[in-house]
Structures are given as structure tokens and as C-alpha cells.
Design a protein around this nucleic acid. Structure first.
Lengths: 191, 191
DNA sequence: ACTCCTATTAGTACCTAGTGCTAGTAGCGG
DNA sequence: CCGCTACTAGCACTAGGTACTAATAGGAGT
């Protein structure tokens, strides 16, 4: 059975947002309508064409010109980074991050945010965590926005120590000291 | 002054890698050569066309976005547990757990396995991690099966210390000491 | 001087995934 | 039957290419 216009447009929107790489032709076949109908739908919903969609996805990554480590492997959203120095990322706690029982964030998410920020900070091909020291100072609730601030505190040949402090509304909720291993010892200027 | 072919191709490669959004036309103007020359250069250097470049940048982001979601509930499979005493869980490292770049497991997955095993050990409504001390002694590769063995090492009123050792084929890859907080002090049996 | 070779340029046909526009049809309500 | 909405169809045109052929300029070798 065919969908109504409204239903189709809703589904269309969903389909495109969870796979922006789909063409009008694909969509037409999927919904059993003509390509023109799909185009009218996209216009009404102001959904740009395939190439523009792909481009904007690509631009998102690229705008944060941190080329040393793919920023997309970071848990949480990096909002500022200065390689080998400091960085900030934010992480919004949602339903899937908490214990159902008490709505408290599972520790490994806070660790993941802090650790991947520490990895991102290291301006190196190979950055691995060697050791870590963690303190979970206050439970984080669902809905909280966790701001992690990382700072490189020490460097020698192959080791870099990164200190990460995570806050919810100015309150420290997590503190971690990460000893990172890196393959090269480049201490001079980058680039 | 014009560049030689070799110089131009080197510069071209650099130009494209740090801005994949540039068209052949732009490049032709930038180097003062024809569009065809740029195309020959791209072929020799096997650099794909603009649209393909953009697409691959977009795909990277997209795959990782989808991938970073399932850091969900059960991390590792608990195969044996004795409450307040000891437990064992296994975790198979798959593609989504490693850095694309070097196929090494991201630290937070090892942490997540160990930490959630520690949580499971605590026989309490409210078990939270208060502090942790971690050592990542050896990189874990994709395809490895990580066996985590946890043991309660110390208890007092509200704190329980759990030691977790994770192995891949008898080799220690991770060691963690977790100081867990619990709400009740129940030392006797129950439920 | 003539030939061979490389580098470069020019131009054509074709492709994909569209936009923008005009026109036509099918079904339904008043 | 008129008008409306929803849908379909077709054409010209676009960007940013591929794939291919052909022409030209400047050297090096003999």
C-alpha cells in the first residue's frame, strides 16, 4: 500500500538524514513514485541535492582543521584544540549512557570522552594510552553536559602526560591523568 | 616563474590534500596551466576527481558517527561471577573497537569491559566507580579475545576495591584497580 | 635538417545527478 | 463540469568531471 504525501515526506526526511548518500532515483524506486515527485518533496522540505548533502557532511569534518588525528574518532564533540597543548570537548549525557536503575552516567563514558580527547591532543601518528589515574568525584546525571578540559602537563621522549578535568556546570565531576605513548619524539615546531 | 612538471605535481598533491574541495579549474588557474594538464597530473598521481574526494571525506565521518553510537550496554560477556568476590568476562575486539589507522583497540573499550565487570561484582543497588588506576601494558589488536579477571581485594564500610587483569592469550594487556563506592554496607548474605 | 619524445593544449562526445521550467493527467470535492 | 491537489513527463541546461583523439612546441640525438 502506498503512503500519503505527508507520510512519504516524513519517511523521506528520515531516510535522507540517516543516509545522506541516497540519490533521487533510489528514493523514487524505494517509494514507488517518480523522480519528479521526490524532487518536489525535497523542495518542500528544503532538503538539498545529493552533492550538496555530501559536501556539507565532508565540510563538517574538514572545517576543524585538525589533520593529525581524525577528530571523528573522538567521543564527545571537540570545540577547541591546540595540538600538544590543550583541548576542550563537550559530551551530552543521554539515555543510552546511564544506568537505568539510577540514571547515573556509566564511568566508561566519562573515561572515553577524556581519553579520546587526550589521544586527539597528541600530534602523532601513533598515540596510545599507557597508564591512567582516574577520579570520579561526583555522579553525572542524565541530561548533563560534560565539559572536558585537557592540558598537556609533561613531555619527554616518548611520553606525554595529559591532565583532563571534566565539569558539569563548573562542578568537577571527573579528573584523569593520562600517560600517553607516542612513536616519534618530535619536540620542535610542527608543520 | 613556472614550475617544472615534477614540482607542479608535488605541489598539486599537497594542495589537494590540504584542500580536497578544489576543482581542476581552480588548480589550472593557480598553476597557470590548462585544465587538461591538471587532469593528466591527477591521473599520474592517481588522485580522484573532486566529487569522489568529497564523498570519501564524507564517508569517513559518517561511518565513524554511526560507529561511535554502539558503546552501549553490555561490554563484554560475563561468563562467571561470584558476587563480592570475583568474576570473568570476555570481549572480542572487532572493527568498530579499533583505530582505523593502526588497528589497535581504543583504550576506553578495555576500560569499559573492566569497569563494567567491577560494577557487576558489587552486590548493591548503587555501585559507582570512585577512583581508578589503569595500566595498558600491551596494545590489543583487532580480532583478539580479551579475558578480564576481576577480584575483590579489599572492603570496608562503603568502599570496595576491585582488581581487574585482562589477558589476550595469557599475556597481560591491561590492569586496573577500581575503587568502588556502594550505598549500603551489607556484609552479610542477601538475595 | 630531420626525427623522436615529452609536455602541453584543444576539442569532442559522454556521464551523473541534479535545477528550472512547461505541460499534461488522474482523482476527488463542491 | 470546474477547480484543486498530487503526481508524472519531457526538455534545456549545469558543474565537474571521464575517455579519447589530435595538434603543437621545444629539445635531444644522430
Amino acid at each position: 500500500m502506498k503512503l500519503s504525501k505527508k507520510e512519504r515526506q516524513l519517511t523521506l526526511h528520515q531516510t535522507i538524514t540517516d543516509n545522506p548518500f541516497v540519490t533521487d532515483d533510489d528514493l523514487a524506486k524505494r517509494f514507488g513514485v517518480s523522480v519528479q515527485t521526490i524532487r518536489l518533496d525535497r523542495m518542500e522540505l528544503s532538503i538539498p541535492e545529493l552533492r550538496e548533502r555530501i559536501k556539507s557532511v565532508a565540510e563538517q569534518t574538514f572545517e576543524d582543521e585538525v589533520r593529525s588525528l581524525p577528530i571523528d574518532e573522538v567521543i564527545g564533540e571537540v570545540i577547541d584544540i591546540e595540538l600538544d597543548k590543550s583541548g576542550i570537548s563537550i559530551f551530552d549525557v543521554k539515555e543510552e549512557h546511564v544506568f537505568q536503575r539510577n540514571q547515573i552516567t556509566r564511568g566508561h563514558h566519562l573515561f572515553a570522552q577524556a581519553n579520546s580527547l587526550a589521544v586527539a591532543l597528541i600530534n602523532d601518528e601513533l598515540a596510545l594510552t599507557a597508564r591512567a589515574n582516574l577520579l570520579f568525584s561526583k555522579p553525572v546525571q542524565m541530561g548533563d553536559r560534560v565539559v572536558a578540559k585537557a592540558k598537556v602537563s609533561h613531555r619527554d621522549m616518548h611520553r606525554t602526560t595529559v591532565e583532563v578535568m571534566s565539569y558539569v556546570d563548573k562542578t568537577l565531576v571527573f579528573k584523569g591523568e593520562f600517560e600517553m605513548y607516542r612513536s616519534t619524539s618530535q619536540l620542535g615546531e610542527e608543520n
